[in-house]
Design a protein around this nucleic acid. Structure first.
Length: 529
DNA sequence: TCTCCCACCTC
DNA sequence: AGAGGTGGGAG
């Protein structure tokens, strides 16, 4: 039901550009008073060096348009990219320090949705979350100067509904709502993942929340995708064209309804996400509903872990309906502004579309979901292929935690991981966890697993519409897991989380920092295919 | 609901 | 020129 709306909505005014960040600071910092702000319940540790980091969502305006209608992302067995693409501008990093940037997508709530009567509504409880996978940006690790130099794009990230996906794509359940999150992990040699001091922060842009679907439900969304995604250009056009096309395709007879027709109609769907037009959404919603801002920790890992329980109760509402509708079609669609949006990368600077992240929150976890680990566990695959060093570590850490992480490169990419190759041949390298032990992992893990926290509260903190919430974590705060000393939340990590590095061109050699040990992870190949 | 294939398009 | 990203329709 409704909850969503709030959840996703943005609350504050757009104007805020500030990011609210809640970061965890290290205790020290805290004590020092470094962090003043952190409102969030979470642990307030801010890590040094992480406090000034701000993340701005690229093309936030376009995201908001989708959000107002109720963003839907197609998930396929082979993996489908998100659109709008997730791109951010990052500021406040130490130019010389190395960081790993990664994303994960956590359940926004624990509901299953259905689209009927032109609107989304809750239809039941969510399926157990799959193991959360992390998508490590291919450039990781890289210096702050590198990341700040231009937009950081996660456009190659793919979403799949194949729970046995061997490619390292992010696994989601259809008709469930999710919240993407970005995590920045300090990875310099002096502060590797393994180290206790690993610092990281998480940023959540509520307007990027979406419902995963195997086919679009709301025509308004279809229309927005067609109008803004360059790859869907073939579906644009005047009706003439459409008719044309259709006639060809369909051959015969059917008059076929022009897509445009459809589009037009779409008008009324409400969006679950934001309520109405603007977004009301509370901050809370932001991220994941689950997220905990509160107390839990949020660690990157947590983030990673995603699946988790969903905490936020109130936020989620049950049904959404949206009221606002106007938005759509006409407004935007046709001609609207956003079309340009897809333009893409631009220099970071003046992009009007950026929004600072605002929320602060820990990642909490959203993912936590603990429960679900099983499956994953079974299939753990770990392929850390060319991961960046840092990533590897993360992965390792996760493993220790019990999760498998994937650092693999993307399928298509260079990474061997790709196919379904037998494990044996896998190209990837395994890393041992040990370094993982490090704090990051820990934290991450913590996050991961556990329970939901909620962001809800967050709203209090959160504010600005567009800001992402940020959380910083500190290593020490909690580290410890069962295994390595990292602590795992109750839920623990999920069984597996995969860290996935996108592939990049970069190669990844085993990282410099540590040696990798092999991990015994079982590949996912199993099902995947 | 989901999967597969298609025509069309970007890169 | 080829690889790969789109949504639609059929099944």
């Amino acid at each position: 039901m409704a909850d969503t709306e709030e959840t996703f909505g943005l609350q504050n005014t757009p104007g805020d550009s500030n990011t609210k960040e809640v970061q965890n600071e290290s205790k020290e910092d805290i004590q020092k008073g470094t962090l003043s702000k952190s409102p969030s319940p979470q642990t307030p540790y801010i890590q040094q060096g992480m406090e000034g980091i701000k993340v701005y969502l690229h093309e936030g305006e376009l995201w908001t348009k989708f959000d107002e209608v109720g963003t839907e992302m197609i998930i396929t067995k082979a993996g489908r990219r998100m659109f709008p693409s997730y791109k951010v501008k990052v500021t406040g990093l130490n130019p010389k320090t190395k960081y790993i940037l990664l994303m994960d997508v956590v359940p926004a709530d624990d509901h299953r949705y259905k689209f009927a009567d032109n609107k989304w509504s809750v239809t039941g409880k969510a399926e157990p979350a799959m193991p959360g996978r992390l998508y490590v940006h291919a450039d990781s690790p890289a210096t702050g100067a590198h990341w700040m130099r231009q937009l950081v794009s996660f456009q190659k990230l793919k979403l799949t509904n194949n729970h046995l996906d061997p490619f390292g794509h992010i696994i989601l359940n259809s008709m469930h709502k999710y919240q993407p999150r970005i995590h920045i992990v300090k990875a310099d040699e002096n502060n590797g993942f393994g180290s206790k001091n690993t610092a990281f922060c998480t940023h959540v842009f509520p307007e990027t929340a979406f419902i995963a679907v195997t086919s679009y439900q709301n025509h308004k969304i279809t229309q927005l995708k067609i109008e803004n995604n360059p790859f869907a250009k073939g579906f644009r056009g005047s009706e003439d064209l459409e008719l044309h096309r259709m006639s060809r395709m369909q051959s015969k007879d059917y008059p076929v309804i022009p897509r445009s027709t459809v589009r037009q109609r779409a008008g009324s769907t409400p969006s679950p996400f934001s309520g109405e037009g603007q977004c009301l959404a509370t901050p809370t919603g932001l991220g994941s509903p689950y997220s905990p801002e509160n107390g839990v920790t949020g660690s990157p890992l947590e983030l990673l872990s995603q699946p988790g329980p969903y905490p936020l109760p109130h936020e989620r509402g049950q049904d959404y309906h949206c009221t606002k509708r106007k938005v759509s079609e006409e407004g935007h669609t046709g001609d609207h502004p956003y079309r340009k949006s897809y333009i893409e990368s631009s220099p970071s600077e003046g992009d009007p579309y950026y929004r600072p992240s605002g929320y602060s929150q820990p990642l909490g976890l959203g993912g936590g979901g603990a429960p679900y680990r099983t499956e994953s566990a079974q299939r753990q695959a770990c392929m850390y292929a060319g991961i960046a060093p840092g990533a590897a570590e993360l992965a390792a850490g996760l493993e220790e935690l019990g999760c498998s992480t994937w650092a693999g490169v993307s399928p298509y990419g260079s990474c061997p991981v790709t196919g379904v190759p037998p494990p044996d041949r896998m190209p990837y390298q395994h890393f041992s966890a040990h370094f993982a032990t490090g704090p990051l992992v820990t934290r991450l893990s913590g996050v991961t697993g556990h329970a939901p926290q909620q962001l809800g509260d967050a709203h209090s903190h959160a504010h600005a519409l567009y800001q992402s919430s940020v959380t910083s974590h500190q290593p020490l705060g909690r580290q410890c897991s069962p295994n390595a000393g990292i602590q795992v939340p109750a839920g623990g990590l999920q069984g597996n989380e995969y860290l996935y590095q996108h592939g990049a061109s970069r190669t990844l050699s085993p990282h410099p920092y540590h040696t990798v040990h092999s991990v015994s992870i079982v590949p996912d190949w199993s099902g995947g295919s």
